[in-house]
Design a protein around this nucleic acid. Structure first.
Lengths: 130, 130
DNA sequence: TTAATATTTCGATATTTTCCGATGTATCTA
DNA sequence: TAGATACATCGGAAAATATCGAAATATTAA
C-alpha cells in the first residue's frame, strides 16, 4: 500500500461523515469560529472540535487563532484538491447545506461572545430538562 | 439530515477504502471482469465482489453480464459525478495505481478462463501451505 | 491571582465496518 | 445430468469509528 494511496483514502474518509461534510460545506462560504459552527449546526461543541481535527488532518481546513477564538476556513483555493472541489460542487447545492448557510448568515449578525454563550446555555439546558 | 446529504456521504464512504479506491482507479482505464480484478489486485474474489457491490450502490460502477462472467466498468463519463472526477484525478497518477494498471495490461493478454483458474488456484494454495 | 470563557482531549460505550473462508446460486460444458 | 466455473452472499469475530459528557488546557478579564 503506497503512502499516497493511503493518504487519499484518509482524506476521503475525513469527508465521508455527515457532520464533517456539513462543516466543510459550511466553510465553503467563508471563515467561522468554532462556536459559530457549533451554534449553526446545533451540535455539541466537542463534536465540532473533533470534526475539525479530522478535517485539518486531511488538509481541508486551516485555523487562525485570535485571542481565545479559533477561526477555521477552507485551505486557499489554489491548494484545493480535485477531491475537495468535487465534494463542494456536489454539497453546496444541497438543501440542508443551504439551510446551514442561511443560519450562518443569521449567526454572523450576532457578536461572537453572544453566540458562544448561547452554545454554552443550550448545552446546560439539555442537562437541566433531562 | 437530508436524504441528499446522506447519500453524498454514502458515496464518499464507498470510495474511502483502500481496496475500493484501487478498484475504482483500475476501472478508470477500462472494463474488466471480476476475476481479472481479483487477479490484478491479488485479493480474495469475495472481497472484490463485496467492494464492487458498494461501488455499484454508490453509482460509481456498472456491470454487464456475459455468460458466467460479469464485466464491470465506471459509469459513462457523461454521468460521472464531480466527486468521482476529483477522485480519479487524484488517484490515477499514484504509483500503486499505475502498477495495478500495468498488471492489468499483462492480465489482459491472457484468456479470461486462464486468469480465473489462477485466482482459484492461489486461493487453494493459501489453504494448503498454512 | 481568581473567575470566566473558548476550545481540546479523554473516557467509555455503542455502533459500524472489515475481512475472508464457507456456502449458495447461476451458467456453462462434457 | 453431473461437474466445473464465475460470482454473490453469509457468518461472525476482530478492528475501527462515533458520540458526547466530563475533565483538561489556554486565553482573557476583573
Amino acid at each position: 500500500m503506497t503512502q499516497d494511496l493511503r493518504s487519499l483514502v484518509e482524506r476521503l474518509k475525513a469527508a465521508s461523515h455527515p457532520l464533517r461534510l456539513r462543516v466543510l460545506a459550511l466553510l465553503g462560504s467563508g471563515e467561522l469560529c468554532v462556536c459559530q459552527v457549533a451554534e449553526v449546526l446545533q451540535v455539541p461543541q466537542s463534536s465540532v472540535s473533533e470534526a475539525l481535527r479530522e478535517l485539518r488532518r486531511a488538509g481541508f481546513v486551516q485555523e487562525r487563532k485570535e485571542g481565545r477564538w479559533v477561526f477555521v476556513s477552507l485551505v486557499p483555493q489554489s491548494e484545493v484538491s480535485p477531491v475537495l472541489k468535487g465534494i463542494l460542487a456536489e454539497a453546496m447545492p444541497l438543501a440542508e447545506v443551504q439551510r446551514d448557510r442561511d443560519r450562518a448568515a443569521e449567526v454572523k449578525t450576532l457578536s461572537i461572545p453572544a453566540v458562544c454563550c448561547k452554545v454554552q446555555q443550550s448545552a446546560k439546558a439539555e442537562v437541566s430538562h433531562v
